[in-house]
């Protein structure tokens, strides 16, 4: 569904060019859930923005559904770290925003909005304004707004990282269910090993400065997965430990003093 082919990105910084991404190649299959994990500043968001068509690669190219990405596509939905809701629009009107912008008929999407509100437990809050909702609920609205696009691909940029730990887990489990139901291809950027292990088919571990794929780790644990006690705790612990050591042994970072 997505092929990233020798993509590099160099920004012009004040003190010379900054190489954010170097020669990344990845292929993401239809319906696959790929998690991109790395330390902050390793260029994971940059990579995602290039897939989204928000940023042009300095070198290489990205294809979605066989077509080279030169600008954003309407069958690719983004979910940002911030919910990015319009503060004057109610929950349901925020979800309808893409429908309006695409110039589609709102009446045709009412039923889908109802279903999305139902799935995310927001039905009782549909008329509320964003500032009346908790952070977790706001991010659910933002997820619904992405899903109303009926996207082939969802690109998620640390969508849960501003939330408290329990809400994050809750939302991650919800996202897993949505992915299992819809089979949307998802690229999910995070710095949480836990989220990566819960959600991903494969995890791309990036190294820092410049961002390069250090390793692709398969997560063969059957779904639905869950946090806490479950039948695959050994496997979860094993994969988590592997990701942990990959991230900590990132040699491109200057060594800090001993902890």
């Amino acid at each position: 569904m997505i092929s990233i082919d020798g993509v590099s990105q160099t920004f012009k910084g004040k003190s010379g060019p900054v190489e954010a991404i170097r020669d990344i190649s990845l292929t993401i299959g239809e319906g696959e859930f790929l998690t991109v994990i790395g330390r902050s500043g390793c260029g994971k968001s940059t990579l995602l923005r290039m897939v989204a068509g928000l940023l042009k690669p300095t070198k290489g190219e990205v294809r979605v559904a066989g077509e080279v990405v030169r600008e954003p596509r309407r069958d690719v939905a983004m979910v940002f770290q911030k919910p990015a809701l319009l503060p004057w629009r109610s929950v349901e009107d925020n979800i309808m925003l893409p429908v309006e912008i695409f110039g589609r008929r709102k009446a045709d999407h009412r039923a889908q909005v109802d279903r999305l509100l139902e799935t995310t437990g927001l039905t009782a809050f549909r008329k509320r304004l964003p500032h009346e909702l908790s952070g977790g609920m706001q991010q659910r609205v933002s997820l619904c707004r992405a899903l109303i696009q009926n996207p082939k691909v969802m690109l998620m940029d640390e969508p849960f990282s501003a939330l408290d730990a329990l809400t994050r887990e809750e939302l991650a489990v919800e996202l897993q269910r949505i992915h299992m139901d819809l089979g949307t291809t998802i690229v999910f950027v995070t710095h949480s090993i836990q989220e990566a292990v819960l959600l991903a088919d494969r995890v791309a571990v990036l190294s820092s400065r410049p961002g390069q794929v250090r390793r692709l780790v398969e997560i063969p644990i059957p779904r639905p997965r869950s946090f806490g006690h479950n039948a695959h705790m050994d496997q979860v612990a094993g994969v988590s430990a592997e990701l942990h050591s990959l991230l900590l042994s990132d040699t491109h970072l200057p060594k800090t003093s001993t902890l």
Binding site: A52, G53, L54, E71, P72, R73, R74, V76, A77, M78, F80, Q81, K82, A84, L86, W88, L97, P98, E100, I101, F102, Q149
Partner: peptide
């Protein structure tokens, strides 16, 4: 207009006019 809303309208391929009326003006 905050960056996240600008990115949102860009990722939705909203026209300049749509962005202006639906987001920037009210903001």
């Amino acid at each position: 207009t905050p960056d996240d809303l600008q990115e949102l309208t860009r990722s939705l391929k909203a026209s300049w006019w749509q962005t202006f009326v639906k987001v920037r003006l009210t903001w």
